[in-house]
Amino acid sequence: MDTSTPHIALKTENLSIGYTNKKQQSYIARDIDFYLVKGELAGIVGVNGIGKSTLLRTLGNIQPKLSGSITLDRVPLEQHTIAQLAAEVSVVLTEPIASKNLTVLELISLGRQPYTNWIGTLTEDDMEKISLALDMVQMSELKSKKCYELSDGQLQRVMIARAIAQDTQLILLDEPTTHLDLYHKVQILKLLKSIAHTTKKTILFTTHEIEIAIQLCDKMLILEKNQSTFGSPCELIEKKSFENLFPADIIIFDAQTGSFRVNK
């Protein structure tokens, strides 16, 4: 074992993602190479339709990869059982929750399902983790509220809390700031960064908020059809990686400010 390298939580090599229909493979993106270590907040960015959500679902074992490798905690993803994955990876997708009639506490409690007995009895340890998750997202005072009574920002916090309560080392979130205003977008991403750094969990999320991600992420993956570029935001700016995201005659990336502007 190489002790000089940090603990790698997630790694992909030559990964290709897409769909298989009638024995025919439809590739969305190829040659995706990146790795994340414990305690990092990382964002996946790219143009619409490039496969950000598909990549996240593939990493969460919700849909199969087409080729290449995914290793989770140094073990190939396919060698983990369903029960092991439930205790190792939590996934928050953009689909609406099944029942907004649940209370905040009830919804977050669902995160403990991988650990409860067959009748779903919560132990003292389960309750402690649920309480900790509520505190982390600052929702303790609203724990008895029904989910339909919450704002979009509050509901997003509850979904994050459910993932925290699941107590996995890897948390995958698809567009956690969708439908939120700028203040709440920043608030959610700062919360995720704080959770990653304080709990040493690895958090990976997809986003359209490239400029906010540049400011808050430890690492970023720029997803493109035939290649992927990975590194810290500073490294990616130095490599001029963001300049290829949009047509230069329409949108220009300003390396000095880490922001995009319209080419007038």
Rank of each mutant, 00 (worst) to 15 (best):
D218T: 09
V186M: 14
K219S: 04
I171L: 15
L170Q: 01
L216T: 02
L172M: 15
S144E: 14
K185N: 05
L134F: 02
V137E: 01
C217R: 08
L191P: 04
D174G: 08
L223R: 03
Q166I: 07
E224S: 15
Q154E: 15
L221A: 05
V186E: 10
Q154K: 09
L216M: 12
L155H: 11
I214A: 03
L191T: 01
K143Q: 15
D167N: 14
L142C: 10
E141G: 05
H184Y: 15
H179D: 02
D135V: 12
D152M: 09
A213C: 10
I222L: 15
I160D: 06
K201T: 04
G153V: 11
Y148Q: 04
A213R: 05
K146L: 13
L204P: 00
A161N: 10
T177N: 03
Q187V: 00
L172R: 10
T177W: 08
Q187K: 13
T199E: 12
L134E: 00
E128I: 12
T178I: 12
T168S: 13
S140A: 14
M139R: 07
D181T: 08
I214C: 03
I188L: 04
C217H: 07
D167P: 02
K193T: 00
D174K: 07
A165S: 11
L172A: 03
L173A: 09
L172H: 05
K145I: 03
L170C: 06
H179K: 01
L192Q: 00
M127D: 08
E175K: 05
A165N: 09
D174R: 04
